[in-house]
Structure formats: structure tokens, C-alpha cells
Design a protein around this nucleic acid. Structure first.
Length: 774
DNA sequence: CAGTGAGCGAGCTTCCGCTTGACTT
């Protein structure tokens, strides 16, 4: 049996380290946290110093059992979890969960996975930092109290199953407020004058652009200006040249990797992390959840060698970057290739592309800055008082630009190009001049990656939680990721060419159609509720201020349960007050009067989502309800739209002595007959569809269904073997079953079917977010 | 896109942060 047991957080790390330490050491992984508060209850004793009640996490029972076995026989257990708040807590929980003898337990930390770093760590063990553990405990307890007291309040006051928390609720707030900002944005237009000049009056010379410094808000002013330019003289007044520098961006951390993979590869945040995990597990990159931009000495010397080998010594510039991230804990290195000699790797196309991005960014970060020359040329016109300006940029030395340039989130950046050789006093020739209307644009909506960037700036969330947080708020349907068509403006354009002005109207088409984050009705409502009653927690600085207190606890200047007590007192009081005094928060809006019944028409969020309502809830006669369409919103629904929702279901008449109705469901408009549903085709309008057309659809559907049947049985008509998208499957009543491998669908007997249905392994899972309640 | 098409009431829902698999579809 091994004399020494080393425990790290990640199994991939364990494997690497074991190679460094020799046969007296066995290295195991805890797979992250091993104990936590019980999920089913609050698990914090608020009347007793907020004592947390921990248990071994259900999915870690096996891990703990395994570690216990090895620890028992080891002379010494080395706790090597990460050197940050959570890592320290993991070590402490391991002591508790494994019942470790303190005399035989040592705490070690290292920032680089190299043999020397680890040997050095082993030579310098320490004890567990109790203060740091307390700080983590405060963090954990605070998050539990906030999450588990706010969420049930939402169930009561807004809608069941909702959730709230220190991180997710603020993330949703960002999206909600961005949308409000956009709604209130007033676009103004102005005319921008751009001229294209040539240095000589012949076709070969380079055409370059220059802009007039004044923009005209009125069309007529712009037109006057252009008219004055007909036949004007243009002359170079001055040429200014200025050297400039550009420096490379720091190596990747989790958030910047997510942003660049989104901008350059179109990856979602979740996808980036999944692929990065694969690269990490196969040993190709360092750990992908990090907030440190630091590179190890080993990496730096590898980079130096690689850069001078590929591009020459003048391209090398070794740098160390400073961390800008608020509350960074820097337990790891930056994200980089483990071996910079591997410029490319084999793997899936996603892996290849993400790796290449990481390689380039790492290499570029250690390369010299680019040297540029910026040129500004002033051009006078005899047709106006101000001078046109042309900006050019020439790269004198490319430096890191040879490899990598960081992307931006701006939607239309204009590239500056080359300018031809010119001298002061030169006459210029007008090729063309345009006055183009421009509309100011609202700031862009968040993408997943730009939301992460914002959260990081606010110090909210951690590298390991960015991706999960974003998927949580989408799963809860607080926000939705989609591309919506942007409204287009008609843009006026005047062109002066060859002494003549022409006018035209174009469609403004610069808006990007990429997927963005939008708030849902529920997201908006929950945010309003929380901002109204819990402004402190919804404050963008809340996390930053509690982080400060966590730091004080870590420094030993504050007791963790005192901090929690100070927070919890007023917080809990607010929960109780709101519980008792606040009414139901439905976002109800009165839209007007139903002309048919004279009753009030409302729109609000009901127990099952957004609904329209005719009649008052308090009145004797029950109100009528109708759910909103997917594309409609509580915020914007009009009276007419609400009334139209009550047009369905509409009876069309009878077919085969049974009623045919048309309605609109979750999957769009449908015709219902004899308990069977038939989707209406795109070209059919549910408001005007006729009985005859409906019968056509019903019969077409019957025919299609018949063709799907592989086998059916007279003895039990509920049982069918059907042809599906992924091959044959079995259907009994409403439940589907998959057929075991190798089953001959064509020859199945009824008994075979029953047997298949009995095996729970074959039951198909219900998909979709909708749960049936009966 | 295999099929699906809630609705007055039983019980359940929920946080953040650390780490991977186990399910297939």
C-alpha cells in the first residue's frame, strides 16, 4: 500500500501529478466539493449561530468511500485542492468526511502542474486555513439563505417553481434593463458626408475616402452642401503622420475564451466549455476554469523559443499581465496549450478550432507590439469652410498581429486603409461624394458571452458558474436566446458624381441577425418584483460588497456568523413583511372593455404563464381565460389581440357526425376531430379555414398515419408498431417504447409487444419542458 | 417534427460553486 495519498480536485490533474511523484505516492481526486447542505431543506440553523448542516453529496458517496479506503492505510494524506476559498473548504470538508487524523494530514498548494512546483509544495506543507474556510462557509450560507427564502416567496406571489438567487437574479436584471433601455431609445438621424478622392485625374490611381467633419440633421441642408460641391476645387492642406502602437491581449481566462470563441467561432458559452473540457482531459490545454492571466515560467520559455523559431527574435517580447478581474482568486494558470510546440492538433473540428484559437492567443501574448503609422490628411474645398479629413493606417511592423487580433463586440467597425502618397498643396480630384442618412443605434443586446463579460466586470459569479448560470436562466424561461428580425429604416442617399446629384432611398441593412438574449414576460415580472421588494440583493454592487466582507473574514477580522447575522436580520424581516403585506404580483394590465359582454379585459401572468382574461376575478361569474401565443407579450398585447385569442376554439361544423373545431395550441394552429389533432398548414389561416379544407387535412393525416403502421393487432387495438424517424418503435395507448436492438419489427407478435413494454428500459422519456399535471 | 395539444389545486418546486460522467437522441 502507498505511504502517501495526495487528493486533488480534478482527476485529469491527479493523473498528471502521479507521474511526478514516484511510487510512494498515490494521487486521487475528490471531483470537486464532497459535502454540501442538504438540497431538500434550508439546512442552516438560523436560531443557532447559523450552524450549517452538511452531508456527503449523494453523488460523492462512492468517491468518499474510495478515498477512505486508501486514506486508512496511508501514513500521510496530502490535501492538494486549489488555493482559493472553495479549495480550502474542500480540504476542510475532506478532513471531516474522511475523519482524517490531523497529525497525519497536510495541506499543500501549487499553481503550476510541474514536477518542481509539486516537489516544492510537498516540502512546504501547512495546516488548513480556518479563516478562509469560514469565508467560504459565509458565502455558502448566504447563497442558501437568499436562494431558499426568496424562491418560495416567488412561488407564493408570482408563480410556482420559480427561482431567485444572488447571481441569477442580477443576470436576468441586466437583460431586462437592457431591453427597457432599448425600448426607450430614440433614434435620431443625420446626414454624413463622405467623399472619395483621387490624386490624379486618371483611373489607375488609388481612390480613398475622406469625411466632412459636420453632419447635417436636415435633408435639405445636406443637399445644399452637396450642390455647393459641384465643380469645387479640392486641395491637400496638411498631412500629419504619427507613430502608434498596438499591444496584444493577455492570455485567455474562462470569460475571455468564451467571448472570443463566441465572436470568432460562433460557439455558445456552454459549447466552448464542453470542448475546452475535452481538450483539458486529453492533456492538450491547461485547466479551463480560471481567472488568472498568469503563465508559468515553463510556458514562457516555450513561447520564447517557439516565437523566435517561427518568426525571429525581433518578434519575441515576454510579458507578465496583471489581473483586472474583480475578486479574482487565481488558483490556476491562464488557459494555454500544455505544449506550445503543437501548433495544431488532431480532433473534432470544434476541438481543432478552439485549440488553434488558444494557441494563437497564448503565442501572441508573448510577441512584440505592432508598430503603426497613422496619417491624417486635411483637404480643403472651395465649396465650404471646413476641411475634409482622411485617416489612414499603415502597419510598419506587424509584431503580434502576425498571429492574432482580438475581436470586438461592436457591430460595425470601419477599417482604416492605406492612403496614396500625397504632398501639401496637391490638387485632388473628386471621384464621388455621398450624403448618407444615418440613424443612431441603441446599444447592442447581450449575447451569452457579452453577458458573461458584464457579470465578470461586476464581480458576479465564478469561472465555473458562468456557463451553468446562463443555462439556468434560460431553462427557467426568464430569458430567451434567439434572433429576431430588427426593424429596418428607410435611408436616404444622395450621390454627387460627374457634376450631377442623384437621390435614392435604401434599406438600412447593417444590423446583425446573430442570436441575442431577450427577457421573457416572466423574467420581466420577477425582476420587477425583486427590485421592488429586495433592491439590496438586486443591486449590481451587492456581490462586490459581500465579497469585501468575505475577505475580512478570510483575514480574520470578522466572524462569519456575525456577518451572516447582520445580513439575515433585515433580509428575513423583509421576507416576512412581503409575505404578509404584498398582494399577488401578476403584472396585470387592464386593456379595455370587451364590446360583446361589456366586461373588463386583462392580460397577466397566470399560474401557467401569460394569459388574457375577460371579466373580473372577484365577480360571481367566472372569468374566461385564454393563453397568449408564443410570440406575444404581456407587455405589448393590445385589446384587439386579446379579444382575438378568444375566437378559438371555433366550431366549423360536423364531419362523420362528429364536430370539427379549429384552435391554436402550443405547436400552432390545428383542427380537432374525433379527439384527433391535425396541424394546419402554413398557407391556411385558422381564422378563415373552411370545413371542406379541414376535412381534406383530416383525410390526408389519416392516410399518412396508415402508412406509418408496420404492425397492428385485432386483439388489442391500442398496440401498434410504427415507423418513426429513427426506425420502428412500439406504441401502446399514448406511451412509446423503443425496440431492443436486433428486433424484427415486421414479425413482432402481440405477446412480444407486451414483453417489450414491461421492460422499463424501453420506455421513452417524455421530452420538452412541459409537465403534464392531472 | 416519432408524438404532442395543461387549466382551481396534491405535491413539488429553490441557491452558488467545485468537479465529471451517465444517459442517449
Amino acid at each position: 500500500m502507498a505511504k502517501n495519498l495526495v487528493i486533488v480536485e480534478s482527476p485529469a490533474k491527479a493523473k498528471t501529478i502521479e507521474g511526478f511523484l514516484g511510487k510512494d505516492f498515490v494521487v486521487k481526486s475528490s471531483f470537486g466539493h464532497v459535502r454540501d447542505l442538504n438540497k431538500t431543506k434550508i439546512s442552516v440553523d438560523v436560531d443557532n449561530d447559523f450552524t450549517p448542516e452538511y452531508e456527503i453529496s449523494p453523488d460523492k458517496k462512492k468517491v468518499i468511500a474510495d478515498l477512505k479506503k486508501v486514506a486508512k492505510t496511508a501514513d500521510c494524506v496530502w490535501l492538494a485542492s486549489d488555493e482559493d476559498r472553495e479549495g480550502e473548504a474542500i480540504s476542510w470538508h475532506l478532513v471531516e468526511a474522511l475523519n482524517l487524523n490531523k497529525k497525519k494530514t497536510k495541506r499543500i498548494v501549487f499553481h503550476e502542474i510541474t514536477k518542481t512546483a509539486i516537489k516544492k509544495a510537498i516540502e512546504n506543507p501547512r495546516g488548513i486555513d480556518e479563516n478562509l474556510v469560514s469565508a467560504q462557509q459565509a458565502r455558502r450560507v448566504l447563497d442558501r439563505l437568499v436562494g431558499y427564502e426568496l424562491s418560495p416567496l416567488l412561488w407564493k406571489k408570482v408563480k410556482p417553481s420559480l427561482s431567485a438567487g444572488r447571481v441569477q437574479s442580477v443576470a436576468v436584471r441586466l437583460i431586462v434593463e437592457k431591453e427597457e433601455e432599448i425600448k426607450n431609445f430614440k433614434s435620431v438621424s443625420s446626414f454624413r458626408i463622405v467623399a472619395e478622392f483621387k490624386t490624379a485625374d486618371n483611373k489607375k490611381t488609388l481612390v480613398f475616402k475622406a469625411e466632412y467633419p459636420i453632419r447635417f440633421s436636415e435633408f435639405t441642408d445636406a443637399k445644399d452642401f452637396l450642390e455647393n460641391q459641384i465643380g469645387a476645387d479640392f486641395q491637400v492642406v496638411s498631412i500629419q503622420k504619427k507613430p502608434a502602437k498596438k499591444s496584444p491581449a493577455p492570455p485567455f481566462i474562462t470569460s475571455t475564451l468564451q467571448q472570443e470563441a463566441s465572436r470568432k467561432l460562433g460557439f455558445s458559452v456552454g459549447n466552448t466549455m464542453r470542448v475546452a473540457q475535452q481538450l483539458y482531459e486529453s492533456g492538450k490545454i491547461t485547466y479551463m476554469r480560471t481567472d488568472s492571466v498568469n503563465l508559468s515560467k515553463l510556458a514562457l520559455s516555450m513561447a520564447k523559443e517557439k516565437i523566435s523559431g517561427l518568426y525571429g527574435d525581433e518578434y519575441v517580447k515576454i510579458r507578465s499581465f496583471k489581473n483586472k478581474v474583480k475578486g479574482a482568486q487565481e488558483a490556476h494558470e491562464a488557459i494555454r496549450p500544455t505544449d506550445l510546440n503543437n501548433q495544431e492538433i488532431n480532433g473534432t473540428s470544434e476541438q481543432v478550432r478552439l485549440y488553434s484559437l488558444i494557441w494563437k492567443r497564448t503565442i501572441a501574448s508573448q510577441m512584440s507590439e505592432a508598430k503603426l503609422e497613422k496619417t491624417t490628411v486635411s483637404i480643403s474645398t472651395s465649396g465650404a469652410n471646413d476641411n475634409f479629413k482622411a485617416d489612414g493606417e499603415v502597419i510598419k511592423f506587424d509584431g503580434f498581429l502576425k498571429v492574432y487580433l482580438e475581436g470586438t463586440d461592436e457591430e460595425n467597425g470601419e477599417k482604416q486603409g492605406m492612403l496614396p502618397e500625397m504632398n501639401e498643396g496637391d490638387q485632388l480630384f473628386l471621384h464621388e461624394m455621398r450624403a448618407r442618412q444615418r440613424f443612431t443605434k441603441h446599444s447592442p443586446r447581450f449575447t451569452e458571452a457579452s453577458l458573461v463579460k458584464k457579470l465578470e466586470e461586476l464581480g458576479i459569479g465564478r469561472p465555473s458558474t458562468y456557463a451553468p448560470t446562463i443555462s439556468t436562466i434560460q431553462r427557467r424561461e426568464y430569458i430567451i436566446k434567439e434572433s429576431r428580425p430588427t426593424e429596418k429604416n428607410d435611408v436616404k442617399l444622395m450621390t454627387l458624381k460627374s457634376g450631377k446629384i442623384t437621390e435614392e432611398t435604401l434599406q438600412d441593412n447593417i444590423s446583425s441577425e446573430s442570436t441575442k438574449l431577450f427577457p421573457t414576460d416572466i423574467g420581466i415580472l420577477v425582476t420587477r418584483f425583486l427590485v421592488k421588494y429586495f433592491d439590496k440583493i438586486m443591486d449590481y454592487n451587492f456581490t462586490a460588497s459581500v465579497e469585501k466582507e468575505f475577505d475580512e473574514i478570510a483575514d480574520g477580522h470578522k466572524k462569519w456568523n456575525q456577518m451572516i447575522k447582520d445580513f439575515y436580520g433585515p433580509f428575513h424581516q423583509k421576507i416576512v413583511d412581503t409575505q404578509e403585506n404584498a398582494g399577488k404580483f401578476s403584472g396585470q394590465r387592464l386593456l379595455g372593455i370587451d364590446p360583446e359582454s361589456g366586461k373588463n379585459v386583462y392580460v397577466k401572468i397566470g399560474r401557467f404563464g401569460p394569459i388574457a382574461q375577460i371579466g373580473d376575478t372577484e365577480s360571481e361569474e367566472k372569468p374566461k381565460f385564454a393563453g397568449l401565443r408564443k410570440t406575444q407579450s404581456v407587455e405589448t398585447l393590445t385589446l384587439e389581440e386579446a379579444l382575438r385569442l378568444f375566437d378559438f376554439p371555433r366550431a366549423l361544423g360536423n364531419f362523420e357526425e362528429k364536430e370539427v373545431t379549429v384552435a391554436i395550441g402550443r405547436f400552432g394552429p390545428y383542427v380537432k376531430h374525433d379527439n384527433k389533432f391535425v396541424s394546419i398548414k402554413q398557407e391556411d389561416n385558422p381564422a378563415t379555414i373552411t370545413l371542406a379544407r379541414s376535412i381534406e387535412l383530416i383525410e390526408a393525416k389519416r392516410k399518412a398515419d396508415l402508412e406509418k403502421i408496420i404492425r397492428s393487432y385485432k386483439e388489442d387495438e391500442d398496440v401498434q408498431v410504427l415507423k418513426g424517424r429513427w426506425g420502428a418503435f412500439l406504441k401502446i395507448k399514448k406511451q412509446n417504447y423503443k425496440l431492443p436492438k436486433g428486433t424484427e419489427a415486421e414479425t413482432l407478435t402481440l405477446e412480444d409487444c407486451y414483453k417489450i413494454a414491461k421492460d422499463p428500459k424501453n420506455a421513452s422519456k417524455k421530452r420538452g419542458g412541459f409537465k403534464k399535471k392531472k
